[in-house]
Write a protein that binds this DNA or RNA. Structure first.
Lengths: 233, 233
DNA sequence: ATTTTTACCCTAGACTAGTAGGAAAATAAC
DNA sequence: GTTATTTTCCTACTAGTCTAGGGTAAAAAT
């Protein structure tokens, strides 16, 4: 089954990291021979949840790679009761949050993600998002961000969570976009001038100035805002 | 430690649900005596991850209540990579959607839930919802609903997903509420008259009439709208 | 340079924890 | 009342965890 794949994967991670079995075993709070035993003898058959978590963090990989169960819980066909059930609850992906731009300011090309946060997005919503259903690597196409400030109020308020979908450069159309800026990520309404090809960057909050006639080459568009979640009370 | 609290909590959930130990043990794929053994004898000391997940979904509660490790992941100081990580994935609850009212019209007392849909809500969002973290039985406290119609536009638009939190009758304050109606669930702005104690039921869309001076006893308030998710593009 | 020490990998075995099933008692359903 | 199911308790078996010890390579000491 997959158990051996997990062991080989962990073995590979350990060998390329320069840390040894024994030190890492002690790091997860086990005896010195623990991981060698897991990898070589398959005992235990699966890593304990807490161990797996520490190891995933240590190596900076997804827990799935170390055997975390896939999120698919089709738990039977019991009739509906007053108690809510979640029998079809397993179809969703986890969208990582963009990291604060102050951290990733060095590289203007790579997006940095915050390893501490993830936004679960349900797939079987009444109207699935097309990009999700057709994307081979949804994690490379979607990111979450928490709006800061009132620049886009009332459309997007401070604290709202937005879902950003990356786009092809040729497919820019009018809409809300996440833009890389020196202070991190800004969300603005972008309009594409049909003749000049220049962009207008607009705040929905009229108290903030718009920027018209911008050179598209000088704007680092991250992606388009396709969804927003907001707390009401 | 906390292990006994988990067992007592699970015991309480089982006893109030009307399902027995044996049936639930079989549901998680264990022998009939498994959960009785866990609760009574503390063997195993912790529920297996997969078991815990099924039980949490069954009861509609957070996995934290059943012993999931707390989200404290400063485990190591590996440098951030470009690849998004899901090391904090998994800390969320599944909120069931209310069923279409046409199905549950018989009983005016019990809420019916749609077993086919669930809304994952992340716990470690930047601003966690307090009710989730403090609720003993969140399944009785949270439900999702997809808004239909433009009665509450522009606050809530057709197709928006809302999160409904149940309330104590004595704690009604002004706000958006989900209301049981003959056509299912309606979302309205409710105002509580401070002197007469009567309610006003208002549509944010001025094209729809408001209903003032309503008898609170004749209004079936499901709960308060605390969050909304909306598709933008 | 050599020798000693340290740390690691590996293995076998002992000990502990987990899992399941069966019998008896209790409860629920008819 | 009888029958079926669940709960409770006990026991055997399996899996998990750890320790002790051997061998080896690398680091430290001389």
């Amino acid at each position: 089954m997959q158990e051996e794949a997990v062991r080989q994967r962990l073995d590979s991670l350990i060998r390329t990291s320069g840390v040894g079995y024994a030190a890492l075993s002690r790091k997860i709070g086990r005896n010195a021979a623990y991981l060698q035993q897991f990898i070589r003898r398959g005992v235990p058959r699966r890593l304990a949840e807490a161990d797996r978590h520490i190891l995933a963090c240590h190596f900076g990989v997804s827990e799935h790679l170390l055997g975390a169960p896939a999120v698919s819980a089709d738990a039977g066909s019991s009739p509906p009761t007053l108690q809510p059930q979640a029998s079809q609850a397993g179809r969703f992906i986890l969208v990582p949050y963009l990291a604060d731009g102050k951290d990733g300011g060095e590289s203007s090309e790579a997006l940095a993600f915050d390893p501490a946060l993830a936004l679960p997005m349900a797939l079987p919503m009444a109207h699935p998002l097309p990009a999700i259903t057709h994307c081979d690597t949804p994690s490379a196409r979607l990111a979450a961000w928490r709006v800061r400030g009132d620049g886009m109020a009332p459309t997007l308020n401070d604290g709202d969570t937005v879902l950003i979908q990356s786009h092809e450069p040729a497919s820019i159309g009018d809409g809300l976009y996440a833009i890389r800026s020196q202070t991190g990520v800004q969300v603005r309404r972008v309009s594409f001038h049909p003749v000049s090809g220049r962009l207008s960057i607009i705040s929905d909050n009229a108290a903030y100035p718009a920027c018209h006639d911008c050179d598209p080459e000088s704007i680092a568009l991250i992606g388009r805002i396709i969804w927003v979640g907001r707390r009401i009370a």
